[in-house]
Simulated assay, not measured.
Amino acid sequence: MRLTVYLAGQIHDDWREQLKQKAEEKNLPIDFVGPMENHERSDNIGEEILGEQPNNIIKDETASQMNNLRTRVLMEKSDAVVALFGEKYKQWNSAMDAGAAIATNKPLILVRPESLHHPLKELSQKAQVTVETAEQALQALAYIFQEN
């Protein structure tokens, strides 16, 4: 059995690459997918596809349409979602992705530091698992494959 796991959350550090590398080191049969991590490409994809837009608001809206399409397709094909909330950046996309996982009944692992317990308490109650680190999320995924 292989799992496909959608990695939602901040794109301003390399947590995804670290998680993928650790999963590979543990020989876990997991394929990871997620949002476009190239921030410039993500911001400009609407214009790449539809051409130059008349203003920044419409440019943002067309990019959002393309990014929402990507997220929906990849999330729907995923078996589970890991949504990471960090302390440094506003996590609007993480919240949206976590909500989408809940709405589509995808198993959700919520990763958040203890300091974000209060603002994320409702999301945490809807997740199957809440942990404080990406490593703990990987351990939870690894548990799926353990035999008796």
Rank of each mutant, 00 (worst) to 15 (best):
V111M: 00
Q91V: 07
V131C: 04
E122W: 15
A98P: 04
Q128M: 13
V131H: 02
E122V: 15
D97S: 14
T130K: 01
T104W: 06
F85I: 09
V81D: 04
H118C: 10
E135C: 03
H118T: 13
L120M: 05
A127W: 06
F85V: 07
L116D: 09
V82D: 04
N93G: 15
A80F: 09
A83G: 08
E132Q: 12
T133F: 07
K121H: 07
L84N: 08
A83I: 08
P107L: 10
I102W: 05
E122H: 15
A137M: 11
T133S: 11
A95T: 06
G99Q: 09
L110V: 09
E122R: 15
E135Y: 07
Q91F: 09
P107M: 09
A134S: 12
D97K: 12
G86W: 04
T130Y: 02
A101G: 06
K77R: 08
D97I: 11
L116P: 07
P113M: 11
V81H: 04
V131T: 04
E76C: 14
V131M: 01
S115R: 12
L120F: 06
L123N: 04
L110E: 03
G86A: 13
S124K: 08
E135H: 05
N93F: 05
A127F: 06
Y89Q: 03
D97M: 14
K106S: 10
V129A: 00
Q125K: 14
V131Y: 01
L120G: 01
P107I: 08
R112K: 13
A137K: 05
A127K: 09
V82E: 01
N93L: 10
S78G: 10
L108P: 03
Y89V: 09
P119G: 00
Q125P: 06
Q128C: 06
T130G: 04
R112L: 05
V111F: 00
K126E: 06
D79N: 13
V82I: 15
K88V: 13
A127Y: 10
E87L: 15
